[in-house]
Design a binder for these strands. Structure first.
Lengths: 241, 241
DNA sequence: CGTCAAATTGAGGGCTGTCAATCGCGGTGG
DNA sequence: CCACCGCGATTGACAGCCCTCAATTTGACG
């Protein structure tokens, strides 16, 4: 499934070292198609907090996440928020076959994106079934993740939610590593408020549970954001599943 | 997108009046392909409670739901359960490109299914991109629904969850109707215990909230299962979004 | 050193869970 | 026909987890 990468003849400069060409959707494209897509491609950065798509806004560009973390949120009419997904490099960001977005995408950290017109991608998906296949695989992974979080949201305690969250970040924060790899030290990509919105909790409960994990010597916390997991097994034992 | 249906020449008898050929994934197939698929197709019924796929079990057949409701559940190690999806006719039931299931599928009501070997479908998806496209569209809808429920699970109160649930059933229980149609009287496809597992609540809380909706004359309840929504707008007003 | 936002900590209350008793309905058998 | 049973649903009392509100601390930055 991983694309051979011996010669890079004819591949756009932008794409040569791009992770999306290896594990992302662009791996389905041949050099000519990469050239065609890259004509309307824009690579750019977005600062933490920048809104990338907005609920009920029209969407005319999709993106690959090249680095950083993007959060997908939904908001109720009275302001309550829920984060419904986190995307890491080299995830594909966008909802094909729908002009209006039903959620908001926001840069949770500084991010690098590679974006392209929605219609270009949808046309190429028609012409190149492998591309649509890659998108399907990505969306199936997102669906699996969404369902895992439904269990956490509906049935786990606050302590279990926090443990599950930390494990999930440990699995995904390193863009180079494979799916089963877990780092034991990392910077949280989310603030306490965002973690609360992700786990269906309040800021205070998130803080209390993190403090408790630190008190029990399961993790260390430096500068509020940096987490060192001392005992991965003990953290996993507290995740509920 | 809806398939023309003037002549039915060459279409397998089983498929002629099948809803999956109109709004389901089989709409992507031409008569020859339908014949090919129908060779390894089995149509069968399953009683309420019958397990259709099991967590960690191998999956060698996918299905279309022709009637009834299928529930998708996940279970934590200590027995806590969460329903992570409901499938109505003519939904496609299965997780392509993965031999092992990560969830359990169970007949919530008596259901009719049309099943076919996983490998046959995956091969046809390769040969017929339209079919893969249909699967993608279905999985994108499931993802949208999963994210809507994440908001409910994480941020809605018990009362709002119940109201949202009733509205969702009203939208989906009638297989013939379109997506924006809502019926005002229907039989609940789930028991109180199942509703609780769907909404991340307990049986008692579900019962109390239904009783309250009845007391406020928003709904009527006959025989525990039959619901008549007296005031759809007032129910929607209590759904939170 | 002062300012400000983010995070922590504490006290108290409410929503929902837990446990237990009762109700209602359908089925079975006398 | 009626008593009995079994299961799901309802109702009540109480407790606990998490939320709310508020004060304090911490850390980043000028």
């Amino acid at each position: 499934m991983v694309r051979e990468d011996i010669h890079t003849t004819g591949i756009p400069v932008l794409c040569v070292s791009c992770e999306a060409r290896h594990r992302g959707i662009c791996g389905a494209l041949n050099p000519d198609q990469l050239v065609a897509l890259s004509k309307s491609t824009k690579r750019h950065r977005a600062e933490t907090g920048k809104e990338l798509m907005s609920d009920c806004g029209s969407v005319d560009r999709f993106s690959n996440v090249l680095s950083g973390v993007v959060k997908l949120t939904k908001t109720l009419s009275d302001g309550r928020q829920q984060i419904v997904g986190l995307q890491f490099a080299p995830d594909f960001l966008g909802r094909p076959f729908q002009a209006e977005s039903t959620l908001t995408a926001e840069a949770a950290t500084n991010v690098e994106l590679c974006s392209f017109p929605r219609q270009t991608l949808e046309r190429m998906m028609k012409e190149q079934p492998d591309l649509e296949h890659r998108v399907l695989e990505q969306k199936l992974r997102e669906l699996d993740q969404a369902r895992d979080w439904m269990v956490a949201l509906g049935r786990k305690t606050a302590a279990e939610k926090i443990a599950s969250f930390l494990l999930m970040i440990a699995r995904n924060i390193d863009p180079a590593a494979g799916p089963e790899h877990r780092v034991t030290a990392f910077d949280l990509p989310l603030s306490r408020a965002e973690i609360a919105d992700f786990l269906g909790l309040t800021i205070e409960t998130v803080s209390r549970q993190l403090t408790r994990l630190r008190g029990d010597n399961v993790i260390r916390i430096d500068n509020n954001r940096h987490i060192v997991v001392g005992d991965l097994a003990r953290l996993a034992a507290r995740s509920g599943d």
